[in-house]
Design a protein around this nucleic acid. Structure first.
Lengths: 137, 137
DNA sequence: GTAATCCCTACTAAATTGATAGGATTAATA
DNA sequence: TATTAATCCTATCAATTTAGTAGGGATTAC
C-alpha cells in the first residue's frame, strides 16, 4: 500500500507545480486545497526540502517552491524520498541492497527472481514519469 | 515491502512444486528446509488451502499439495491471496476498488494516473509468471 | 515590533506484522 | 483400539510502522 505520506507528498508537489514558479506556496494553502492535515503536511514538505526536491523561504510570504522544472523531477527520486526503496525486498534493491538472513544463495531464490522483474517494471514507470506528467505542466 | 508472510508463502509453494505431485508435503519439512517458523508457516499454508491453491490431507502422512499444475498457478492469484490487492491504492484496484475520501474527481488526480501505470506494469509481470517459472518445474 | 511563516522535537493512538501457545480434530498403523 | 503424527483453529502478544498532534523556536516582511 501507498502510504498517506507519499500520497500527500505527490499531491502537494503537483499543486506546487501547477501554481507556477513565481512565488513560494504556503503549507496552509496546500493543506486547505488538498484536504491534508496541515501539521502532517509540514513534516512531509520538510522531508522533500531536505532531499533537495523543494526549496523554501521562511517568514512572512514564505513557502515552498520547486528546485527544478517539473519535467526534470523524476518519480524515481520522489518515490525514494517519500516511500523509500522501490524494490519490494532489500535483496533486489539497487540503492539499499541487503542480503536476506534466510537465503543461502539468492541466485537460486524463486522470490528473488520474481521481485527483480517487479522492480524493473516499476522502475521503468517511475523513470519515464516526471512531475510534469502528473501535473500537466 | 513484501511481507514475510508472502515471502514464506512463495518459498513454500516453490518447495511443494519441486517435490513432485505424488505425496503431500508436511509443514515441518518445509519449515526446516526453508528456515521458516513452523507455526507461522502453518497459518500461511492454511490460507493458501482456503483460497483453493493448495489442498491438504490430514492425519499421519498428511500434508499439503498443489491443486493444479505449477504452470497453471498464476502469480496474480498467489499474490492476491498472500499480499492482498496488487494496486497500491484502493482507487485503482481492479478487485478491491474503493473511492478515496479526499478525492473529489479521481480522473483529475495525479496520484491516480501514476498508480494505474504502476498497477498495470506489475500486473503484467504477475500475469506472465506462474509457479512453474519460479520453481523451474 | 508584530504577524506570518517555516523549522524542529517529542509524543501518542491505532493498525499491522510476525510471530507463539495450546489444544481440537483427523487419519494411518501397530 | 490405542498411539502417533499430522492438519486445523482460536487466542494472544510484542515490536514496528503509520498517521497524526502538540508546542514552541527561528526567521522574515511589513
Amino acid at each position: 500500500m501507498l502510504s498517506k505520506k507519499t500520497k500527500y507528498g505527490l499531491k502537494a508537489l503537483t499543486f506546487i507545480a501547477r501554481s507556477g514558479d513565481d512565488v513560494p506556496v504556503q503549507v496552509s494553502v496546500i493543506a486547505k486545497s488538498e484536504q491534508i492535515p496541515q501539521k502532517f503536511l509540514e513534516s512531509i514538505l520538510l522531508t522533500l526540502r531536505k532531499s533537495g526536491i523543494l526549496g523554501s523561504k521562511k517568514g512572512k510570504h514564505g513557502g515552498y517552491y520547486l528546485r527544478s522544472e517539473p519535467s526534470e523531477i523524476k518519480m524515481t527520486d520522489v518515490m525514494r524520498v517519500l516511500e523509500g526503496p522501490i524494490a519490494m525486498v532489500p535483496c533486489v534493491s539497487l540503492n539499499y541492497y541487503e542480503k536476506c538472513d534466510d537465503c543461502p544463495d539468492e541466485h537460486k531464490c524463486s522470490v528473488h527472481k520474481l521481485m527483480i522483474e517487479v522492480r524493473d517494471s516499476t522502475l521503468k514507470v517511475f523513470r519515464n514519469t516526471t512531475l510534469a506528467d502528473l501535473s500537466g505542466v
